[in-house]
Computed example of a mutant assay.
Amino acid sequence: MEFLSKEDIEAPIAGVFGAISDFELLERSALRRGIELQRIGDPASPEKGLAWDLAFSFRGKQRDIRLALASYTPVTGMILTGGGSGIDGRMEVELLALSPQRTRMSVQLTLSPTTLTGRLLVQSLKLARSNLTRRFKLRLAEYAKITEERLNRTA
């Protein structure tokens, strides 16, 4: 199952990359949403194997996932991979400078089952595909807007 969305942000590419790679801010945001997390590695040097153990409730069940930074390319993007609870996932975030003050952020999320339980979960997600795709795009647009406002405030 795959989700894809693109958003344009009125900010320089370096600033946008700094915002999406502010792992401590993202961790605080996850904690506010009720996700338990334990970081493995140093966020000051993310290219050396930064990872997180996440625990949260989804569809009435406790889910445990290991999320790892698979690729970290300063200014252009990163790839996160994760697995657990019968599902493997991969999220690619790519940044493209459209102009000195405009950046396009593309996010692709791919989920694939690894067990029968995971297959049932992915199948139920496929049944709600249009709603989930809409929510994914809205969430990314909201994140892009917040990032743009934060970067323009500090500029």
Rank of each mutant, 00 (worst) to 15 (best):
V93N: 08
E36A: 07
R139H: 13
Y143Q: 09
S29I: 03
D88C: 06
Q38Y: 06
V16I: 09
E7N: 12
T73P: 03
G77P: 01
L127N: 14
S112E: 15
S124N: 10
A51K: 05
G34H: 02
T73M: 05
V122D: 10
F3G: 08
S130V: 15
R39E: 01
K126I: 11
R119S: 14
I13R: 00
M1D: 04
T110Y: 12
R139L: 15
E47K: 02
F17D: 01
A155I: 12
L98I: 10
L125Q: 07
I87Y: 02
A55V: 02
R153N: 14
R129I: 12
A128G: 13
V75W: 05
I20L: 00
V16Q: 03
T147K: 08
L121C: 11
T103G: 07
F23Y: 06
T103Q: 09
L37H: 04
L4M: 08
L132K: 08
D8S: 12
V122T: 15
V16G: 00
G60M: 01
R66C: 02
S106K: 11
L96Q: 12
S45R: 08
D42W: 03
L138H: 14
T147R: 07
D88P: 05
Q108N: 11
S124V: 08
T76K: 02
T147A: 13
R139T: 15
L116P: 09
R32Y: 04
S21T: 02
L138A: 15
E36R: 05
I35V: 10
P100K: 13
I87H: 06
L109Y: 13
R102D: 13
I65T: 08
T73A: 06
I87R: 03
N131D: 15
L54Y: 00
S99D: 12
T110I: 15
G77T: 01
Q123K: 13
A55E: 03
A11S: 10
V122G: 11
S99C: 09
F136Y: 15
A70H: 03
R134T: 15
L125I: 09
A14E: 10
K137C: 14
A11D: 04
T81A: 04
T114E: 09
T147D: 09
G83T: 03
M105D: 07
A14D: 10
A141L: 14
I35C: 02
E2H: 08
L25F: 08
L67S: 00
T114C: 09
R102W: 14
P74Y: 03
S45Q: 10
P43V: 04
I87V: 13
G86P: 08
P43N: 03
N152H: 13
D53A: 03
R90I: 04
R129P: 11
L4R: 06
M78G: 01
S57D: 07
G34Q: 03
K137T: 14
G86F: 07
K145R: 15
I65R: 02
